[in-house]
Amino acid sequence: MKTDSAYELVVQPTCGWLRIDWQGLVHYRDLLFLLVRRDFLAQYKQTILGPLWFIVQPLLTTLVFTVVFGKVARISTDGLPPMLFYLCGTLAWGYFAGCLGGTSITFLSNAGLFGKVYFPRLIVPLSVVISRLFAFGIQLATFVAFLFYFKFFTAAGAAIHVRWAVLLLPALLLHSALLGLGVGLWITALTTKYRDFSYLSQFLTQLWMYATPVIYPFSTIPERWRGVVALNPMTSIVETYRCAFLGVGTVSADYVALSVLITLVLLVTALAAFSRAERTFVDTI
């Protein structure tokens, strides 16, 4: 879509592998925020608890983890209160998984809309990533409340050290958003051709969580496997979260750099795959 001095649009088969309608994105920025608003308003209409579900879901998950992995399986939590350990992991993982899950259905759930009107398709996944921030905010507040309680009112409080690294939270969020976006865009681009990926993605996300140190600390992984686990970009994100908020975790510059690199590669290739899929997906879906 080339634009000349005035307003000229050329509709023709695109060549090139990474064509993003930046101008369109800027023009449609209001739509981005209206979509975020819609997601937020529509999600919990006709529910009693409303946005409280943002808290209930991770709390229940944490509770299950505490019972199953903490009490029954007795997996190490690096000396931290299991509840807090899992809550931190779920917080970090939840935002990423939300971004991934939300963006991976972009084409399937908006097929009707996309088939009738043009706007830069990237607006939709971007709105997902932003609207998930609300849930994250509420969950973060819950987590901080628990952190406060454990730190000052329990004996285990001595083991918890909140570090200055918490100030890196925006960077961590950006990192997980970009990673979730990257994987989600890949999946949604693939689902335009093969629906199988929509089933696969849920299963894969679940599997990925267990491959990430969410319910176990990185430190329990045998030395020779650490390099492999560090190839998973989520590993260093979750560990950094834990290190920042709880003071226990394995963070190394190498692993972080590797994670950022993999994320960027995934994101750029995903953008290419997405922009390739968006051109004609209406014909195949």
């Binding site: 879509m1 005035a6 307003y7 000229e8 649009l9 050329v10 509709v11 023709q12 088969p13 695109t14 996309f114 088939g115 009738k116 009107v117 043009y118 051109r279 004609t280 209406v282 014909d283």
Partner: peptide
């Protein structure tokens, strides 16, 4: 659909001013 950019043409082009 092609003129409204919903799907791309296979060949040829349209210029919209």
């Amino acid at each position: 659909k092609m003129l409204s950019r919903i799907t791309e043409p296979t060949s040829g082009r349209a210029i919209i001013r």
